[in-house]
Nucleic acid binder design. Structure first.
Lengths: 346, 346
DNA sequence: GTGAAAGCGCTAACAA
DNA sequence: TTGTTAGCGCTTTCAC
């Protein structure tokens, strides 16, 4: 009972036989290649339909394309990545390309390396890497093999394309916003650095750097206070607990991303303090939860769907043959909500 | 500049030449197959190491396995699925199998069908389907081709394995909890039904059914009020706005899942009502956000990581040859928090 | 225990 | 325009 039937799959040869043509003809029709008369196209298409034929990606991979786009994603738990994936899906919809996702961990260089290799081993036609922590040299090594787009990192490369948010501008927006509200002691939650080498191109490092710069530019060097955790709800919570234990304690926290900001909100709440009367909280990413009325988190919007669409478009261009490197950056917008307010007086 | 180097990949033949053995020998070593002496194993392994050889999945797929597990996921935005994926990753880690994810949409039968076909076309060794809306007949058709585990649906099948939460028990827990708190008019937010045929096996339908049953069993048939939207923050918000417009309005809302529950919280907040003094809100899934102190959402915990681990384990068993069908159900636990409280008197 | 050789389904030279 | 044919990199008989 319930034995797997080794029913043979329909192949290109079956279609050819059924349509009374050669396998070459079928192959041409499948790829919309030159050299097949309209009449033959119709017959082949009819046969494909009747037999329910579907090309096997593995066999195609041996000679040509797999029509597969590999997406490296640190972790699906980050809601901002969902926006990126929406954009990617939008751009790929209607094409013959299918996106497959592989989780890289986001905090484990080895796991990410394995994820990238998994994609390479599976002969995808191109790779979209979302905020990889892998050293640039290795990224370029991969990019030499196959079309690659790196999302979220700022370095210049002549071998792969880059799509990123202007984290410097976005951070400046939030930090200035807080300073204009009268805050002088502003804590910042940053992420542990998991990569090696010179990874200054990663968002969390740019954000921390810009935060420091803007603070100093406003003569608030003494108000700088950075704690380093992971950008999760739990990490944001722990980081905020630490910041709140300072004396004097900061009157505002720039959490670096929405996920840790949610944890920050809960930590402030637990401490019996009010947002924003006692402590202002700001995030980054403008995820959907941030817009909920009971959360109302001030954040920075970087159009994730646009980034995703652009990245996918650039990748398809590369698959089609472009080799010149391109860079695309999104300009972020501050979305001020009720989690930030004037600094408490006194 | 920046031209893609068509540098040939290292193949099994290169390894064989380098180790002075046949390609057959290399293949045997790779698969830990019988018929290779320890001495030969060592030489081949050394050659693999030196040359940096990696097997190409596509070529393997032509004859044997791809060592790839396909995961169909409705949408990465649902945080509960992240728990499932954690469990799957945990179980697959250390094996030679790699999980690849494909998004199916969750609300579009056609998109899901394409996602499943994409997985089949790519010759994965097995498929894990998370809450598919595809008719059972089609699931069984796929399962006849390749090892399949269905997560989240309750139907019995002799062809695929099922891993699911006991939604009936979980729903009973929440609804009774609300009734015991004195609520008589309890609204419920359900999901539109996107599938066809007899999809009574999907979680949202079980939850709605059980909600109705428990209400009636407590003589609260008149207090039943179900609105149907999508299980997103936005959907939960819209559904709650509708429920709050009733007169008399419900004193509690069982949102069916955490995501819509978050939207419900925001809708109640916007209406100028207090949670739980005016309206109690309960979700399902016990996601991390639910535990945040400022949210403190009453929910039902279904151990997603355990479900994921189990599903992956069952799938590997099937890949190794098991054909008898198995079912595994997780017993949910109520997690009462501050979003639910006594019904307002009067 | 070892290796030669056939062949998986498809694409792309090349001939016709 | 059409078809013949030689592989792509691997696994798997089946001799030895």
């Amino acid at each position: 009972m319930a034995v797997r039937e080794p029913r043979r799959r329909v192949t290109i040869a079956d279609v050819a036989r059924h349509a009374q043509v050669s396998t070459t003809a079928v192959s041409k029709v499948l790829r919309n290649a030159y050299g097949a008369s309209p009449a033959m196209r119709d017959r082949v298409k009819a046969a494909i339909e009747e037999l329910g034929y579907r090309p096997q990606a593995a066999a195609r991979a041996m000679r040509g394309r797999t029509f597969t786009i590999g997406v490296l994603i640190p972790h699906v738990r980050n809601p901002f990545f969902a926006d990126l994936l929406d954009g990617i899906g939008e751009q790929l919809g209607g094409t013959d390309y299918q996106a497959i996702l592989v989780q890289g961990g986001g905090t484990d260089l080895g796991a990410e390396a394995r994820a990238i290799e998994a994609l390479v081993d599976r002969q995808v036609d191109g790779i979209l890497m979302i905020a990889p922590i892998t050293p640039k040299a290795r990224l370029e090594e991969v990019a030499r093999w196959m079309p690659t787009i790196v999302i979220g990192r700022h370095e210049r490369s002549t071998i792969y394309d880059a799509v990123f948010d202007d984290d410097d501008a976005g951070t400046e927006l939030v930090v200035r916003h807080l300073i204009e509200l009268g805050h002088r002691r502003i804590g910042h939650i940053s992420q542990r650095n998991f990569g090696r080498g010179r990874p200054a191109a990663l968002p969390h490092l740019t954000r921390a750097e810009t935060y420091r710069r803007v603070m100093r530019e406003h003569g608030l060097g003494d108000g700088i206070d950075v704690v380093t955790t992971t950008w999760t709800e739990e990490g944001g919570h722990a980081g905020t607990v630490e910041l709140l234990s300072r004396s004097p304690r900061p009157t505002a926290v720039f959490a670096g991303a929405d996920q840790p900001a949610f944890g920050a909100l809960s930590a402030v709440h637990e401490a019996g303090l009010r947002v924003p009367q006692d402590v202002s909280i700001a995030g980054y990413d403008d995820t959907r939860m941030a817009a909920m009325a009971n959360i109302s988190l001030t954040s920075v919007d970087q159009d994730g769907a646009l980034m995703g669409r652009t990245a996918a478009r650039l990748l398809l261009e590369r698959v089609e043959g472009r080799t010149a490197a391109m860079r695309f950056s999104v300009t972020p917008v501050l979305v001020a909500r009720r989690s930030t307010g004037p600094a408490p007086t006194g």
